[in-house]
Design a protein around this nucleic acid. Sequence first.
DNA 1: AGATTATATGAACGCCCGTTCAATACAATA
DNA 2: TATTGTATTGAACGGGCGTTCATATAATCT
Lengths: 195, 195
Amino acid sequence: MARKTGSHSEITGPRIRDAALKLFARHGFAAVSMRQIAAEVGVQAGALYLYTPDKETLLLDLLRTHMDDLIADWVSADPGGAPVARLEAFVRFHIRFNLERADAVFLSYMELRNLGPENFAAIETLRRDYETRLETVLSEGAAAGIFALRDAKIAAYAIIAMLTGVNTWYREGGRLSRAAVGDLYWDMVRRSVAA
Amino acid sequence: MARKTGSHSEITGPRIRDAALKLFARHGFAAVSMRQIAAEVGVQAGALYLYTPDKETLLLDLLRTHMDDLIADWVSADPGGAPVARLEAFVRFHIRFNLERADAVFLSYMELRNLGPENFAAIETLRRDYETRLETVLSEGAAAGIFALRDAKIAAYAIIAMLTGVNTWYREGGRLSRAAVGDLYWDMVRRSVAA
DNA sequence: AGATTATATGAACGCCCGTTCAATACAATA
DNA sequence: TATTGTATTGAACGGGCGTTCATATAATCT
């Protein structure tokens, strides 16, 4: 056997990335073998190397795609205008986006350490970009006297950590709907920075 | 060569746990081999099995010790009395404790997935115990009209996530002292739950 | 001093790893 | 239909893995 019937790179490529994302998030980058990823896709291990030069680059692609999506989606969700409205939009956006991609979020917090120094730095730059966007909203609100902040950068870190934490406990079909979670967190964030 | 001069289990045991904690946190449980841990201690791999029945149990011991210490230390740091004072004590305690044990904190968030189901459940129970202690402080304050909360459980999750996030950015010798960080976070927490 | 116990070595076990590559079967094009 | 290009196999490479165990030396006990 060699090439399989119905085989196309536009199909196999995404399936490999999906399988790798799921398995890396579930068991950890180092614990997942290329053979396991291949088995999940229904292919032999050698075939993966038509789609990635090596295992680390496969991880890097997943992390970079996630961060790019995060920033791009926030840019188009950002309403601009009044800082309070922008902050509320950020809170609801961050919770929703992260809940929709729990695997990628977990990966991008846990497996940065498996990247080489320059790849690590590239992802860190994207993360800092995202954090800075929130920090800017907070700073502008503070300058306008709408927010009372002692340190905009720390406030941004604190808010993002708090919101990202939803992923550790939220379960679909549980006591609270996603909208209710957004309401609760926005209430806490709003009060923590209110002037 | 066989037994080494000066060898004692009370010395080698802790050194093995220290090395394992450091390496697991740095590279991930699956990425670290028993031979690497042994080399860090200056011993052969076989000697590790005088101290742990297997690799997973070594991880479990590290995680359980960390959670036990966390709860025991909070119990003795808890001032009791007025909810506001207790909440402030919790905020400062959690930040300090976690900064002092960054490796163990990272491990206990990232490597639970490498535990079997029953070991996983045991650690989860300890975590829930800790979370419930904060939730109780919040609930009592709310009942006394001192805190305004829409959901004490979610507020506890949010506060813990926010505080734990300090570990991802804090660097010794940076712009802020540990005490200053405690002040900033206590300010935000206080306002987010104030009546 | 001699016997016993505790602590370690180092070789070996079978197994799985990431990656490469010649061979090959299917898909697309002419 | 013949040819070219694409997607995949399956075997092989050297190497590292977790774990076991017979053996040996150091520490301790009588």
